[in-house]
Design a protein around this nucleic acid. Sequence first.
DNA 1: CAGCTGACAATAA
DNA 2: GTTATTGCCAGCT
Length: 106
Amino acid sequence: MADAGEGFFKRVYEIVALIPAGKVATYGGIARMIGSPGSARIVGWAMRSAPKGLKLPCHRVVRTTGELCPSYVFGDSEIQRSILDAEGITFREDGTIDMERHLWQV
DNA sequence: CAGCTGACAATAA
DNA sequence: GTTATTGCCAGCT
């Protein structure tokens, strides 16, 4: 990777963009793939500052608890559930994602 | 140049 | 078991 772009952000975009449909990744997990296990917050921040042209599947990025962030939604809180459901993600009774079943790991 | 903020995570009480 | 606090790294003002 000769081009570093924005540096850390670019790295996050690459990881998130590589998340296959039907799978989800955690902020801390992505941060760890980049090489900064303590920058879980930066990953989330990268999503927030992520240009829409990249079409990053932010909905596939969830917390370690399997809970999605309340404010990252594209349009409405119900949208993310619909998207993930369309991707093949299964939700539990409490509205959290089945991490054991959809946690993306290389 | 220095300090603050931020879509999280882990540990302690 | 739940709730609160601290720690982390990188960008932005």
